[in-house]
Write a protein that binds this DNA or RNA. Structure first.
Length: 501
RNA sequence: GGGCCGGUAGCUCAGUGGUAGAGCAUCUGACUUUUAAUCAGAGGGUCGCGGGUUCGAGCCCCGCCCGGCUCACCA
């Protein structure tokens, strides 16, 4: 018999014995008077004398993380909501069934307890237990108490274990949740309405990416998982929802890396009567406050850098190429506006695509501190409004931090005739083999024909903001269940079946 | 998809061709303020999978699976 099977056998036997003592191995509702983190917060500063007069009674629950048995007494650390509290159980302080139950406990079991708060000889805040409740039996062994779970693959596949034993992992996901709620609260305060638009779309659009395809059986149609919600959100602005936002998943059928997961979370928001200049200022406020709400400061520690969201610098894309150029041949501002120079430094077909590629190569990785890059070429921005002073460019900006794009915003193109031309320009790119160029979306053009007010729109990559604020250099560390290949047979059902009387 | 690295007990890891190991965890015993508790003993392994070389393979060679990093693509 393998060790794992033997452990399951032992623990099922213990569960049977626990039942024999009058407890349920998978218990019932438990009405606690306290949460462990609240006990720790309330009494950590109290002296032993203060805790004795008068004694404080508590009833709480948690998972057993460590146990030290010493014959007729013992200690254990219980964990709840990421916080640990020691309990002290002695034979002459609880009834006989309770003591026998204590003797049957395993690390990982979930129990409830009642008792009084005290401080041990060594000074640790603890609970002197007077009654134990049994709430849930662990059958498989917990990871090692000291090193925890080091294997990244197991951490991703069995996130429940990672969350149980890795405080830093738990903290990252709590911080991520604060990021989301901060964005949501700030938008709500400014009158934005949260909406949900289709994730299964007959036509995909709003970004340049390859989609996932799925099929609806009874309608017998192929559908695409959305690569962006953009075109639906702007339809809503046409409909008079002047400030809308959506925080939800996008799906892009492309490479997986430390910065890319096939499904990722995007915030998109649209504000009627605004433009990209308004959004630049708004973005700075939003990100600054998100940092404060999530980590209590505007400065995030990331991969050896101190990234400060308190100030976001701004460059045009041409300025950025000049500013961040490394090594010989640094161009002048005239060079980066010169089609001949651009053509010599990139093999993309148009001057605009060349400029963007040169920017990505020369500058993107160097944009560690939060930076707004604005004035994008029209060819690479099929949904953005032309700049008044140069129709080859659009009123668009992207936000970079930690060398990654974290946001993208523009004044929305609201002229249906121009939008039609842009779609046709994209179709021509598809003809030339660009499989990420935009499709024609006639219903969207029709919506514009009813009048989209001048509007500013923006998308912010939630996962990437979460990465920076949590200091995680892999996107998988801020996604609870990142996409992995299936792991193959697990075999737990068969093991359990063997013990099912 | 390319390159590099990894997969040995439930967990964390040693093991450079000659009898598969340690710590934690588990089991038995001792121990009524311990805290990586301590002490004594015990059990636990298709060494990711499949081939090959060899008298002999965890170790060398080939293929495959899974993962990490990185490049490409992308947000």
């Amino acid at each position: 018999m393998s060790l794992e099977t033997e452990l399951i056998r032992q623990r099922l036997e213990k569960a049977r014995q626990i039942e024999g003592l009058g407890f349920r191995p998978y218990g019932q509702r438990f009405d606690a008077t306290h949460l462990i983190p609240d006990i720790v917060a309330a009494y950590s500063a109290k002296t032993a004398e203060e805790l004795d007069t008068p004694r404080v009674q508590v009833k709480a629950a948690g998972r057993i993380m460590t146990m030290r048995r010493m014959g007729k007494a013992g200690f254990a650390h219980l964990q709840q909501n990421g916080s640990r509290l020691q309990i002290y159980v002695r034979k002459d302080s609880i009834d006989e069934a309770g003591w026998k139950l204590y003797e049957l406990l395993d690390i990982g079991d979930i129990i409830g307890f009642e008792g009084y708060v005290f401080r041990t000889r060594a000074g640790e805040l603890s609970i002197h237990v007077e009654r134990i409740y049994f709430l849930s039996k662990i059958l498989l062994p917990m990871p090692e108490k000291f090193h925890g779970l080091e294997d990244v693959e197991t951490r991703y596949r069995q996130r429940y274990l990672d969350l149980t034993v890795s405080p830093q992992s738990r903290a990252a996901f709590i911080t991520r949740a604060k990021v989301v709620s901060s964005f949501r609260r700030q938008l709500e305060e400014r009158g934005f309405v949260e909406v949900e638009t289709p994730m299964m779309q007959p036509l995909y659009g709003g970004a340049a990416a390859r989609p996932f395809v799925t099929h609806h059986n009874t309608l017998d149609i192929d559908l695409f998982l959305r690569i962006a919600p953009e075109l639906y959100l702007k339809r809503l602005v046409v409909g008079g929802l002047e400030r809308v936002y959506e925080i939800n998943r996008n799906f892009r059928n492309e490479g997986v890396s430390t910065r890319h997961n096939p499904e990722f979370t995007m915030l998109e928001f649209y504000q009627a009567y605004a433009d990209y200049q308004v959004l630049m200022d708004f973005s700075c406020e939003l990100l600054k406050q998100v940092a404060i709400d999530a980590i209590g400061t505007t400065i995030a520690s990331y991969d050896g850098h101190q990234i400060d969201f308190g100030h976001i610098r701004r460059y045009t894309i041409r300025e950025a190429v000049v500013e961040f150029w490394d090594g010989d041949g640094r161009p002048s501002m005239d060079n980066v506006a010169d089609p001949e120079w651009l053509g010599r430094h990139s093999h993309k077909p148009t001057a605009g695509e060349q400029l963007l590629e040169i920017f990505e190569r020369a500058a993107e990785a160097k944009l560690i501190q939060p930076t707004i890059i604005h004035q994008y070429p029209v060819e690479t921005s099929p949904l953005s409004k032309n700049s008044l002073d140069d129709p080859a460019f659009v009123d668009r900006f992207e936000i970079y931090a930690a060398g990654m794009e974290i946001g993208n915003a523009y004044t929305e193109l609201n002229d249906p005739q121009e939008q039609r031309r842009r779609f046709e320009m994209q179709l021509a790119m598809i003809e030339k083999g660009d499989d990420e160029a935009h499709q024609m979306d006639e219903d969207y053009v029709r919506a514009l024909c009813y009048g989209l007010p001048p509007t500013g729109g923006e998308g912010i990559g939630i996962d990437r903001v979460a990465m920076i604020l949590t200091g995680c250099t892999s996107i998988r560390d801020v996604i609870l269940f990142p996409l992995l290949r299936p792991e193959g047979p697990i075999g737990i059902a068969e093991q359990l079946r063997a013990f099912d009387a």
